[in-house]
Write a protein that binds this DNA or RNA. Structure first.
Lengths: 257, 257
DNA sequence: GCAATAGTGTCTATCAGACATTATTCT
DNA sequence: AGAATAATGTCTGATAGACACTATTGC
């Protein structure tokens, strides 16, 4: 931290503060033309910016995340969270959606910005700052596209991950934490279920993510009391036992958990 | 979003995914030397990355934030959140600390990453992605450095801000939201108070941030029950009335609110 | 009738919120 | 005595968690 302060005081090694830059310091890209342009912002070294997308879904009664296998240095043959460079004309969220689309073919899923990781040294090739997004996919729609790409991809239990490249384990930990917290006070869980589901299935979502057993009666009481569920009238029969009611999430009833 | 997908399919306009790049694609900066380096990552256009720091403090019984006045296009003469380019060898957090130090001379304050803003048009000069940090300063230490810099800086009530440059109003809104939420379930509020404080002062912090009156008895009951306060034995006498006990925050008692 | 899961209610402890009076200091 | 703020407790309604039995289906 002290080195950086020095670098800043030294006018030649670091750029001045952006918001203090005089008018002439920039070549406007899509703004009005400026009077003088003696100063090119490109003379400064810039980090690379990537957008990674941590996708999570419930598969085989497990919370799983999609990883891709690296085929080159660094971290050759290790698994990593999918991501890519940001294009100059797309928003961060668009880049995340693009990545999501490329890897899974799925659109319109739950997506939120998770955190930005940018330690120098996290990528040995060059300075890479990664804005990480976090997506939740419902298991049903996901079945469609199994293995499609040339690159090796796979779904892994977040509880039994292989060794991950870069600081990606830290990212998964961060995401899992966020997911668990949001589970308690938002309706985020519904993004992991198909449109219709039983209360038992919803409970299972909570149990898998929180990684603990929940009491059936208390759980149902709590969910039902919020009025966020709509009885579809339909029932789901599987196995040799009493069929379960199918519900649908009603986002209109914005009664928080 | 659709344009970006096109751009991606068009091999010449966008870079390949970072994590899929073959080994030879990079000039290692501080890694092992690679066998072949026909590919220079610098050929791709890169966004600028800045780190902005939204500083908040309690001043004059008000929640205020530090802004600097812009002196050039764009948004000339408007107020903005302080920030600057990131140096290639410093972490995001180090950059935020550097900015904090430059603007206020203060160190060791509460600092957390808030969010990353990166819409393509948010700065008309060039593509700028800003990682925003959020700092809380205690009012007492802050008195020391009043007006020091050449650039015009000022503290403004978050509730009566002037028109802000760029998307900075959105950033303030986001920060205020985060602060309010964290107030309820963390001990973040103590960062806005000096080492010793009265319960009334603590209550005032909550009232100012939540922007509503709180019941004195309920507030004290709740705080005291968490055991996060330590009675210093000292009292604070001001005005012609009964003096108030001075407390100190005890971080050891990690009893969440 | 057996296996298997769906569906349901009560009691208790804890917490949040409404609410008014006494205590201490200075002038 | 009066002004000003500190300090304190009770009641009530809501919520969370522990806990066990009946209902429906297929075989």
């Amino acid at each position: 931290m002290e080195e950086q302060s020095d670098a800043t005081r030294n006018g030649t090694s670091g750029p001045p503060g952006l918001h203090e830059l005089p008018h002439e310091s920039f070549v406007p890209v899509n703004g009005q033309p400026s009077e003088a342009e003696q100063y090119d912002v490109n003379q400064y070294e810039r980090p690379s910016v990537t957008v990674d997308v941590l996708m999570m879904s419930l598969r085989q009664r497990d919370l799983q995340t999609l990883l891709i296998k690296r085929r080159s240095w660094p971290y050759e043959d290790m698994w990593a969270i999918p991501g890519g460079f940001i294009n100059m004309n797309e928003s961060l969220e668009s880049a995340a959606k693009r990545e999501l689309q490329e890897e899974t073919g799925v659109q319109d899923v739950y997506l939120e910005q998770l955190y930005t990781f940018g330690d120098p040294g996290r990528d040995p090739r060059t300075r890479v700052i990664t804005v990480v997004y976090f997506a939740l996919l419902d298991s049903e729609r996901l079945q469609l596209r199994a293995a499609s790409d040339a690159t090796e991809v796979g779904w892994f239990s977040v509880y039994e991950l292989p060794q991950l490249a870069f600081d990606h384990q830290e990212i998964v930990d961060y995401a899992l934490n966020r997911l668990r917290n949001k589970l308690e006070y938002t309706t985020i869980a519904f993004n992991l279920l198909p449109e219709q589901f039983t209360l038992r299935e919803l409970q299972r979502v909570y149990e898998i993510i929180l990684h603990k057993r929940l009491d059936k009666r208390n759980f149902r009481k709590k969910i039902v009391s919020t009025n966020i569920l709509e009885d579809t009238g339909a029932k789901k029969m599987e196995g040799t036992h009493r069929p379960a009611r199918l519900y649908r999430f009603n986002p209109a009833a914005e009664h928080k958990l």
